[in-house]
Amino acid sequence: MTAARELLLSEGPAAVTLAGVGKKIGMSHTNVIHHFGSAAGLQTALMGSMIRDLAGALDDAVSHLRTDAAAPSILIDQVWTAFDEGGAGQLAAWLVLTREVDHLEPIRQAVLDLVAAVKEKYASDPEADERIRSIVLLIAIAAFGDAVIGPHLRGMLDQDSDAGRKLMSRLLPVLVMG
């Protein structure tokens, strides 16, 4: 799974093949077939692994929101890390482009838990639910966009690699409170 993830992150979804993974780990593609059954089996296993990692990162973000005063920046850091370094941005793009969005279903509860934690931490208004859901949507879309096209846009705008993350960290408290 590590080799498949590295290929996805460095070369894109087309590189996640039995032969590509086999080459990366020094095995023949028939050995990889033995473990996964097919290229689709390998890709499904990779998606499952990455989705579990994303759900875990969201769960960690929820824990920090409930216990840590530095929660806004930690939340943004964890989401950005999951989408960028963890590969969730590339995974989401891959799932959407191949029309396999049903693979995203396992993170539904983690996203809903994140909404509840943000609401619990920042919103005393019982009608804040829609605003909080919109904020979580904005964070996810921003992290996704930053992971997928951010490096190119930041280069065009002469911004450092953390520009989007820093911007969202500054915006989150303002958006939640206001």
Score class of each variant (00 low, 15 high):
73 S>P: 07
22 G>T: 08
120 E>V: 10
23 K>G: 03
74 I>L: 15
98 T>L: 06
54 L>Y: 09
158 D>M: 11
177 M>V: 12
106 P>N: 03
123 A>G: 08
33 I>F: 02
5 R>C: 01
101 V>H: 07
142 A>M: 14
55 A>N: 00
146 D>S: 11
1 M>L: 10
161 S>I: 09
81 T>E: 10
165 R>N: 02
108 R>D: 03
92 A>S: 13
155 G>I: 05
166 K>L: 10
55 A>W: 02
125 D>E: 08
145 G>N: 12
157 L>C: 08
42 L>V: 09
58 L>C: 04
87 G>T: 06
155 G>M: 02
156 M>R: 15
20 G>V: 10
72 P>E: 05
6 E>T: 11
171 L>K: 15
163 A>D: 08
54 L>W: 05
82 A>W: 06
20 G>E: 01
128 A>Q: 03
45 A>P: 11
75 L>K: 09
111 V>Q: 12
118 V>I: 13
88 A>Q: 05
53 D>M: 09
145 G>R: 05
80 W>E: 14
157 L>M: 13
170 R>M: 12
107 I>F: 03
61 A>W: 03
172 L>E: 02
80 W>Q: 13
44 T>L: 06
51 I>R: 10
33 I>G: 01
7 L>W: 08
70 A>V: 12
78 Q>W: 09
17 T>Q: 12
131 R>F: 00
53 D>W: 08
62 V>R: 12
167 L>R: 15
86 G>I: 04
108 R>N: 07
1 M>N: 08
104 L>P: 04
33 I>P: 00
59 D>M: 02
99 R>K: 11
135 I>R: 02
66 R>N: 04
96 V>H: 10
10 S>F: 07
59 D>K: 14
146 D>I: 05
85 E>R: 15
86 G>C: 01
82 A>R: 11
124 S>A: 14
138 L>E: 03
87 G>D: 03
11 E>G: 11
29 H>T: 11
158 D>C: 09
82 A>E: 01
89 G>D: 00
4 A>I: 01
121 K>T: 09
9 L>K: 12
27 M>H: 09
19 A>N: 10
105 E>M: 15
153 L>R: 15
132 I>S: 04
138 L>Q: 09
23 K>Y: 06
94 W>V: 06
75 L>M: 05
6 E>Q: 13
166 K>S: 13
174 V>Y: 03
20 G>R: 06
139 I>F: 07
129 D>F: 10
151 P>G: 00
54 L>A: 11
33 I>Q: 08
158 D>P: 04
31 N>I: 07
102 D>I: 14
14 A>Q: 12
76 I>L: 04
41 G>W: 05
31 N>R: 15
89 G>M: 01
61 A>D: 00
18 L>T: 14
121 K>M: 05
130 E>S: 11
64 H>L: 10
32 V>E: 00
84 D>P: 06
11 E>F: 06
9 L>P: 03
8 L>M: 09
120 E>H: 15
101 V>S: 08
154 R>A: 04
164 G>P: 08
1 M>T: 07
47 M>I: 14
87 G>L: 04
55 A>M: 01
